[in-house]
């Protein structure tokens, strides 16, 4: 049986294979992100869930992934500043501890600020790296909103 490499069946097979490849790659990316999120959520939960409370656990929130805690990108308000760390509360009410390291960049507008300039109720956007103890090493902290 001859196979026509220029026929429309050939292109349909090729498109079908391409679609499957793209879907598999997207699935793999989802697993990668999901694993990292779940891993940090587990570490966070071990240390802080009982004390600070955690995200809501309704079925819809579970399906949307809101039962897991973000470890890399955080947006929220400052709940407390102490001992070289900032405790932030995100929009879901989850509290996270940000470790301020010598490499952490704190910015407000075009100014570089220090941890002493950060006050309670300041709204911050943070890029960080989650640690095994459930805290986050802050890499970039930006205050978009200025003083409240």
């Amino acid at each position: 049986m001859k196979f026509n490499f220029e026929g429309k069946h050939f292109w349909r097979i090729l498109i079908g294979l391409g679609t499957i490849i793209i879907l598999l790659l997207v699935f793999q990316l989802g697993m990668y992100i999901g694993f990292r999120k779940a891993n940090f959520s587990y570490r966070w939960g071990e240390n802080y869930h009982k004390t600070f409370g955690g995200p809501s656990i309704s079925m819809i929130d579970n399906f949307q992934g809101r039962d897991l805690v973000n470890g890399h990108g955080i947006t929220g308000i400052v709940a407390k500043v102490e001992n070289g760390a900032i405790i932030m509360k995100d929009p879901n009410g989850v509290e996270k501890i940000l470790n301020i390291t010598p490499q952490t960049l704190l910015k407000r507008g075009s100014d570089t600020i220090t941890i002493t300039d950060v006050k309670i109720d300041d709204r911050l956007v943070v890029v960080g790296s989650p640690k095994n103890d459930g805290t986050i090493d802050a890499e970039i902290i930006r205050d978009f909103y200025g003083k409240n």
């Binding site: 990316l29 992100i33 990292r36 999120k37 973000n70 470890g71 890399h72 990108g73 955080i74 890029v127 960080g128 790296s129 890499e139 970039i140």
Partner: peptide
């Protein structure tokens, strides 16, 4: 970290 944070 920024890319993963965005996707999260």
């Amino acid at each position: 970290d920024f890319s993963v944070g965005l996707m999260e």
